[in-house]
Amino acid sequence: MNRLHTHTALTRRAHKCGQMTVALAAAALLAGCVTINIYFPAAAAEKAADRIIDEVWQLKNGSQTPATPEGKQP
């Protein structure tokens, strides 16, 4: 009876340990996301800029193609 009781307690402890591991993993993952997000998302910014420029200059019909990078003059 006593042994069974100890066994249950051990299982419960192991379970708690697993939960803690999951919680820690969650914290690490979230911290990772936050860290990544500190860097300036250049590609996303370019997309956002293009969407706003489309609206401001009314280029949505696609007649205006993105030109070559600056500095390359014909």
């Binding site: 500190i38 300036f40 250049a42 910014a45 370019e46 800029a49 293009d50 706003i52 420029i53 200059w57 280029l59 205006q64 993105p66 030109a67 070559t68 990078p69 600056e70």
Partner: peptide, 21 residues
């Protein structure tokens, strides 16, 4: 990220110029 302002400005500068007629 208010500190991205300068990066956003330079991204826009390149795109305005790149897409100018």
């Amino acid at each position: 990220h208010p500190e991205w302002e300068a990066d956003i400005r330079s991204t826009f500068a390149q795109r305005w110029i790149g897409r100018a007629q």
